[in-house]
Amino acid sequence: MPSTVKMTVNGKSVSGQVEGRTLLVQFLRETLSLTGTHVGCDTSQCGACVVHVDGRSVKSCTMLAVQAEGAAVATIEGLAPAGGDLHPMQAAFREHHGLQCGFCTPGMVMSAVDLAKRNKSPSEQEVREWLEGNICRCTGYHNIVKAVMAGARAMATGKGGDDD
């Protein structure tokens, strides 16, 4: 039976009717039309759907919408501050050519922001291990790793806003 779920998404209160089986990613994409969060697999492997739930990166295909009741959810659409500038992590991805087709990118960026909050200056190996749950087929990861290291530094030097 459908039920109503309420949460905060990108700082706004939202609610909607969902079925028990509705995944958080379906709620974001289909109910809220936040299509920046992508679905690339059906086994919670690819990480294209990563969002933040209460400040932590989560694969939104692995969580039911009802489990996010009352939570603060942040998606890629809410990351850049108002006014059109990019978040430092987004800017680093652009500067270092850390994206090609763009499909895995929202999940990569959201994962990277979570890493940078925990580790202000991650090493190459730390970045590679952290991104183990995000698959990219285009970039060979080389430039993503560079971007994440640079983005984390930029966030640490105060240019990074609090996205959640």
């Binding site: 969060t37 890629i76 850049a80 990019l86 987004q90 652009r94 929202p106």
Partner: peptide, 19 residues
């Protein structure tokens, strides 16, 4: 040149078929 398509992809504004 830094890519002109990146802004929309980085901000979740790309338009893929399923979108």
């Amino acid at each position: 040149v830094r890519r002109r398509e990146d802004y929309r992809f980085l901000t979740g504004k790309g338009t893929y078929t399923d979108d």
